[in-house]
Structure formats: structure tokens, C-alpha cells
Nucleic acid binder design. Structure first.
Lengths: 212, 212
DNA sequence: GAAGATACGGAGGCACCCTCCGTTTAACAA
DNA sequence: TTGTTAAACGGAGGGTGCCTCCGTATCTTC
């Protein structure tokens, strides 16, 4: 399926080269300047015209996704590995912690996750699906083992995780997030002894009056 | 302290009026267009020049904070009220849930929270302090009662909460966040039987099934 | 009413976004 | 090789928004 089928031309060499250059430049620029960085700066750094950049990546998101696709894949693969860990809850915890590390290392990762999570457009289907599946595999196993509540969807978790990482530019964010994740995972855990009904988690009416 | 002291002039009437107009316009524009909305649009709607806007609010954040200061205060006051609730953990849960409602109602609220949480600049000291204190009062009480782990700081919680609300523009975000908050609060509960002081007999664990 | 402080407005310079199209270049056929 | 042609290139240009600057208008005070 890789060969050009029928009357499709071989892609032009310069096109391939330029695409690669843009990606490389984007990686650098996004890492330094965040996801808001100027696309013109990317083009300049890549040594191509702005038009070329836009031809290859019609939207900022397209470019962004292409840049961080690999990272997403890595996170996803990690989940695959963790699937076989003994303690399913701990596996999930580990995965989340690795996610934090990713964010810490690659500054653009948060934005990539944000993209994956936000805006349901087809463009991000890849990242979103990939990560959702990754989480899902961990979640399902833990739930099946009866070690974790089953009413939390992978999407929920992804969003929560991403959200927690969102303030990644503050001092001390990392340990804060790690703490929060622990709390969170604790909350997910089904307490073996806790078949007893507790008087706590009743729907807690949210109708709090608000003066306006 | 309201009177002009010494040689301070009375503020000009037009200045006061314009400031108010800008605030009102900003409220509308930010609500509609999110925190990225054009400041020039705000100025136009307020019927003032762009220069006037910038004189009153030198940065976008300044304007933003001014607009949402009131909301922050309301959230803060709510915490004050909840302080006297019977169950301290439940009080916290309620507060968080109200926060979600705020976000749902006032679209700009997320951004306001973001501001409060991010960027340690002095500009946001108000919001941040206010909310931190609000949470703190709830957190402390719960911790003092031995009902909740004590190693979570108000800042941690604020960040986590804000983060979860961050994807407020997706369909179904609200119920997702509410679920996550429940998980989270469950995780905050002191779980081990280690605290014999408070109801050692019943495990204060609340991993009950919650229908979505 | 005059003086002086204060505020006003919007032009203007800059940066970025994105599109459009004349020019260049690589792939393929002869 | 050379010619043909589709594909890709680059960057000018029109649009929007940001923010500053400063001549002008207006308000307060005496």
C-alpha cells in the first residue's frame, strides 16, 4: 500500500523536505514560545515561505498535532506496557505520573493534550482516540478487577488529568500535580472493606443560592 | 478612607463614567467572545477610544480582573457560609460544585480562575488570595476534624479545580467535572482506620457507585 | 472665568494571520 | 536530454488586533 497506486505521482522531493523542515522548526519554536508562537517565526526558521507552511499545515492545530503526534504515541505505548502490571490501580497511577513527566520535559505537551481533549473536530481524532484508548485499557482492567469504580470514563480521566497539568508553568507545579493525582487515584479506588454504605456521597444538592 | 486626603483632587466625572462603561462593555464582550476577545471591540461598545480603555486598564489582565472581581468575591463569600455546615467534607464538596455552577453560568469565570491561579504577578493577588483563603477555611476545618488528609494545600486544590473546569466548552463537561470532583473529594477523605479519634468503627470511605 | 491638571480619542507603527497568484521546479514521458 | 505539466514555492498584500503617543478637549479648583 505504500507504492503509488495507479496514476499517482511520486511526491515531490522538495515538498517532502520542506514539510520535514517545518516540523523541525515548529518543534523548536513551540517549545520555546508555547503554542501561541508565531507561525511566521516557524516559517522563517524553517527557511520556507509562509505560504509553504500553510500549504502543508492549513491550520495551527494541524501543525501542532503533527509535532506532538509522536509524544502522544509514546504515552500511548506506555499504557500498553503497563497493561500487564500486577496492580491495575497502581498501573494507572504510574501512567498518570509518566504523563506529568512528559509535560515537564516537553513544554508543548500540555498544549498537545489540550488539543487532544478540546474541540471535537476530526483533526484531533488521532490524539484523542489514542489517549482515550490508552487510558481505557488501564481503566477497564482495574474496574474489571473490582479495584476501581466503574463509572468514570476515559474521557473524564483524560480531561481531569490534563486540567491538573494545565498550570505547568508555575513553580512547584509538578509536586502539586503529583499530590493531586494521588488524591485522585485514591478516590477512584474501591475500598475492599467499604461495602458498607457511608453517609457521605449523597448527591449533595448543588443549588446554592447566589445573590446577584 | 474614602475621602480624598490632603491634596488629592476629586476624580473627574467623565473618567469615572468611562471606567464604568468600559467595565460594562467588557463584561458583555468577554462573556460572548471569551477572554481572547478584542479589546478594541470593548472600547467600541463602551463608546470610548481605545486609548481611554488602556489608560484605565493597562493590561488585558487588569480589565479582566476588574470584571470578575465580583464573581470571585461571591465564591469567596459562599465559602464563608459553608464554614458552618455540619459535615466539613461535604461543605467542601458543595463549594466546589458551586464553583462549577459559576463556571457554567458565567463563561468568563474560567478565565478569571485561570488568572487567579496562574502567573504570580501582584495583579492577581486579590483573586488568588481571596480564593485561597476561601478554600483554606474549608480545608482546615475538615482537616482539623480529622475527616480529611492534611497534606493538600489550598493552592493545590484551587489548581486542580480550575484545571478540571478548563474544558468547559465541551458538551457534557459539567457532569464530567462533577463526577471528577466527587472522585477527588473521595480521595481527600481520610481513609485508613488510623484515626481512631473520629469514628474509628466505620470506615469513612465513600466509594459508592454513582449513577451518571 | 481662568488656569492648570486630567482625561480623551484615534492615528500610527508593529506583529501576526491567512490568501492568492505569478514564478519556479521536480517528475515523467518521449 | 529535453519538453511538458502538475505540483510546490514564496511572499506581497489586505485584514485585524495590540499598544503608544500626543495634540485636543474637558473638568476641577480657585
Amino acid at each position: 500500500m505504500d507504492d503509488q497506486t495507479d496514476q499517482t505521482r511520486k511526491p515531490r522531493a522538495d515538498a517532502v523536505r520542506n514539510r520535514e523542515r517545518v516540523l523541525e522548526a515548529a518543534k523548536v519554536v513551540f517549545t520555546a514560545g508555547g503554542p501561541e508562537a508565531s507561525l511566521e517565526a516557524v516559517a522563517k526558521r524553517a527557511g520556507v515561505g509562509i505560504g509553504t507552511l500553510y500549504r502543508h499545515f492549513p491550520t495551527r492545530e494541524d501543525l501542532f498535532e503533527a509535532v506532538y503526534r509522536r509524544e502522544v504515541e509514546q504515552l500511548s505505548e506506555l499504557a500498553e506496557q503497563l497493561k500487564n502490571a500486577k496492580d491495575p490501580v497502581d498501573a494507572l497511577r504510574r501512567w498518570l505520573r509518566s504523563g506529568v513527566e512528559f509535560v515537564a520535559t516537553k513544554k508543548g505537551m500540555v498544549a498537545a493534550l489540550a488539543l487532544a481533549v478540546q474541540s471535537g473536530s476530526e483533526l484531533h481524532a488521532f490524539s484523542f482516540e489514542r489517549l482515550t484508548k490508552a487510558i481505557s485499557s488501564l481503566l477497564d482492567r482495574a474496574a474489571a478487577a473490582g479495584a476501581m469504580r466503574a463509572d468514570i470514563s476515559p474521557e473524564d480521566l483524560l480531561r481531569a488529568f490534563f486540567g491538573m497539568c494545565y498550570m505547568h508553568d508555575q513553580p512547584g507545579w509538578q509536586s502539586s500535580v503529583l499530590r493531586m493525582l494521588d488524591v485522585f487515584v485514591d478516590g477512584l479506588r474501591v475500598q475492599t472493606a467499604a461495602k458498607a454504605k457511608v453517609r457521605a456521597a449523597k448527591p449533595a444538592k448543588t443549588a446554592v443560592k447566589r445573590k446577584r
